[in-house]
Amino acid sequence: MGDGPWVPPERRGVGLLFQDYALFPHMSVHANVAFEARADVEALLERLRIGHLATARPGTLSGGERQRVALARALAIAPRALLLDEPLAALDPSTRSAVAAELAQVIDEAGVPTVVVTHSYEEAVMFADQVAVIDRGAIVQRGSALEVLEAPASAFVAEFAGINYLLGTAAGTTVRLDGGQTVRTSDPADGRVAVLVAPWEITLALDAGGVGDSALNRIPARVDRVVVVGNRARVTLGSVVAEVTPESVERLAIRPGLEVVAVWKATATRVVSA
């Protein structure tokens, strides 16, 4: 793959957390962690709150417990770095956020430089000081999670971060989108641009009136899809995604096929050249 010399995995000193944890099924939890341990196994088990599972076989553990065992095993070799391969992918969604919070805390306490591979921007934000977005094998942007969110370098990054990325042609503070609509922005620009607007900045209205409303952008659109995730509802309107509360979805009876108006302030948009 890379250049550089080949170092056999056993001499790399990199603790690797496999996506499905790869615990040795024929060994107890304690034996798994002690396999090549250089650290105090008992202390590690206690720290990760799996001390009571020391004699259990991996097959009898829950997903979250298995992950802690795998993490303990990786930390036991006193690694110089940790690599977590989609650490939450093997968990069911109901336990994912609780495990994620714990994992983030363990990583913090371990004090080992850690690379987390994920397909979820939310996980990236949760774990990372630095985010690098990889598209087709190359890093297309790196920076803090906030930097990536505020100025995505491409449509791919914007989509990953969940930000609307609307291509158009700017003339001053007016952008004519490729779809034909016109958007007002607060940053003047000229030529080919992308208008960025976060889904949570967009409100939905049932009529185009807007008298007595300061929001300058009022774009009529048809609802394609409504997906409720936890306490948010993501409403897809063509190329635009709006995030509103499930209560609003119910109150306005928002459903696929309904004609609505997507409303946001000019100051909620940012413009980057495209």
Binding site: V14, G15, D20
Partner: peptide
């Protein structure tokens, strides 16, 4: 035998 288990053992430092 799951190849990941063999790979995991290698990353832990086992020859």
């Amino acid at each position: 035998v799951d190849r990941d288990l063999l790979a995991a053992a290698r990353t832990l430092g086992a020859g």
